[in-house]
Design a protein around this nucleic acid. Structure first.
Lengths: 216, 216
DNA sequence: ATCAATTTTGACCATCCAGTCAAGAAGCTT
DNA sequence: AAGCTTCTTGACTGGATGGTCAAAATTGAT
């Protein structure tokens, strides 16, 4: 009858209804999966609820039984994404061997772009539009993490353990080079033809590139 | 009265009305400029004719006096863009000094991303959506150019004039690294703060990177 | 099996948006 | 300044789209 707004120890402000039944969990998941597919290729405004509903195999009103609206689905998707987006950065170990650590970070990002290309495109879409919905996240969460990482990289540079490079640009380069294979997959596929998969050879190339760049 | 379909020596098939009067030239330009602004940040479906009209300071019917429709404006914009997009690749000189040539290409691409960030984002948007409207261009024009360039790079590798790298990934890396500063400018701006401009330090970093990567 | 709670949906709105049209305003030519 | 052409726009239309609602179907506890 009413939409499923649970109340299990809810914070006052913005309510996040916790799915309870098995059906709720399952259908919310199905919807998010479908929405990811649609949003990541058409962007927020380009996507329609009907498209998402069809993709999910549900009716449009049914979608709106589980989510408060298009915006809500999108927000949920982004929130989940941003969590995993920051994770690799946190795994950088200040005590580790610098080049190994950076190489590992690059590999993790490349793997993410291979395993979750739609998430990468969802993110790219958002940034392209000027990051209206995740400005807060970038300014408050990501920025701090990046600053910390940059400090660490600078320390490694100062200690002569990696070649002297601008730490911010180093980080940006890893983002650019890894995400490119997901975000521009369509272009790469058209250029390389059907035989190849976009990521083919990328890891070897990037390993070569960063090992050359970072050698003291 | 009627829309301006000129007929000055027109090819039969898809008509491209050549603007004649000064007013036509001026207003088409104003519209394209406004459309670039809007399409590049909101994508094709996210943009509205009203937005473009407002941005251009014209009425919506007036827009449609100069162009056949939303699609037509967008197509014109992309066509103009793709011409300039290919240009830098053609400037690579097989007879030149390999590292200088590649470095020059990188610099030209970086400059384009600095001087024409909206064009870069328009292109990125298009690829993200799966390149529906420029598939032909990529398959027929870009691909050939890239293949030729890759052959040239491979020859340079074989002659030992640059370090052995996969030529396709080398090209992709230049695209990724240069366009990133335009396409992800919003993210970079939020991370680096108001003091910096996204491209600050990029050229030095990329020069360092490619000179390390390509040294035989 | 019964009955209340949960889930699903057909039918419906209201709004947005691309595109039309006919009439009016501004330019150009003589 | 007349008269033709080019340019501009207010008012409109039809279709798409986000969202609502009340009734029907299903599920689950007893």
């Amino acid at each position: 009858m009413t939409a499923p707004r649970s109340s299990t120890a809810q914070k006052s402000g913005s309510a996040r209804p916790v799915p309870r039944s098995r059906i709720q969990k399952r259908n919310r998941q199905i919807i998010l999966e479908a929405a990811l597919e649609v949003f990541s290729t058409h962007g927020f405004r380009g996507a329609t609820l009907d498209q998402i509903a069809t993709e999910a195999g549900l009716s449009k009103p049914n979608l709106l039984y589980y989510f408060e609206g298009k915006e809500d689905i999108h927000r949920e998707l982004l929130t989940q994404l941003l969590d995993t987006w920051l994770a690799p950065l946190r795994l950088l170990d200040p005590e580790g061997e610098p080049r190994t650590e950076i190489m590992e970070y690059m590999r993790r990002k490349l793997q993410m772009s291979r395993d979750y290309p739609r998430e990468s495109r969802l993110f790219a879409n958002e940034i392209l539009q000027g990051a209206p919905r995740i400005e807060g996240f970038i300014r408050n969460d990501l920025r701090g993490q990046v600053d910390d990482t940059a400090d660490m990289l600078q320390r490694w540079v100062d200690q002569g353990r990696i070649a002297p490079v601008d730490p911010y640009h180093l980080i940006f380069s890893i983002w650019a080079l890894t995400q490119h294979y997901a975000d521009f997959a369509a272009q790469i596929a058209l250029i390389r033809g059907a035989g190849h998969e976009p990521h083919d050879g990328a890891e070897a190339f990037l390993e070569h590139l960063y090992s050359r760049l970072l050698a003291p």
